[in-house]
Amino acid sequence: MSAEPAMRAAETAGESIVLRVSRYLPGRDAEPVPRDYEVPLREEWSVLDGLNHVKDVLDGSLAYRWSCRMGICGSCGMTVNGEPRLTCGTFLSEFAPGPVVVEPLRGFAVIRDLVVDIEPFLGKLASVTPWLVRNGAEPPPDAEFAQTPEQLGAYKQFSMCINCMLCYSACPVYALDEDFLGPAAIALAQRYNLDSRDMGAAARFDVLAAAGGVWDCTYVGECSAACPKGVDPAGAIQQYKLTAAMETVRRFLLPKGAR
């Protein structure tokens, strides 16, 4: 039996909650306009379930992204009551009696309704050489490359990222300057920099320490608060600042030939 009899009663009474969804159709709307939809308030319904109900039953024209419904694909990130959240992991009951304000992720250009342009983000990810660089020392394809648990532990946290972009949405520096490389891309660079099999740190340094790189970050820390996967991109950035500063000092002190 449910531990929450009140909730139970409310449900059988057919209680509902208002989803206030940001609608934007280019060519028709100059800016997004909120629209209210009444959806059933069920204990096990996430905000995404509410949106699916709108799309299936109330208004088929609503555009939004989703796929896995279990916090893995990273495509359902939206701004819920002002905060960047995965809508599949955010429950309607958290906001009862409502309304639940659903807007597109902040910091990104809106294409339509709740769909934002992810191209700039994908470009940033690609710019940090996000693969194992071996500099000509590739092992044969059938070779194993064993790592100790410590070597795995050095980067594992940063490999948990699902590219949901919630961290960018929480970052005021990115909101002010879209050229900022941003939390997830820098954490991704660290995922490879700290991998014992990787040899690409020098190439990544040129991107991370350049304009728009780590020196733009003021450690607001909200990216890490928003991250649903415990990646701590803010920590990754600060840790890299120390690495980059030491590297700069080293290059400064050593004559060119001795590097």
Binding site: L176, D179, A245, T248
Partner: peptide, 17 residues
């Protein structure tokens, strides 16, 4: 052009200070 601050190579030293 870039809306944000431009970087100089002196940035890491400023950060260390």
């Amino acid at each position: 052009g870039r809306a944000g601050p431009r970087r100089r190579p002196v940035e890491p030293f400023l950060w260390l200070l």
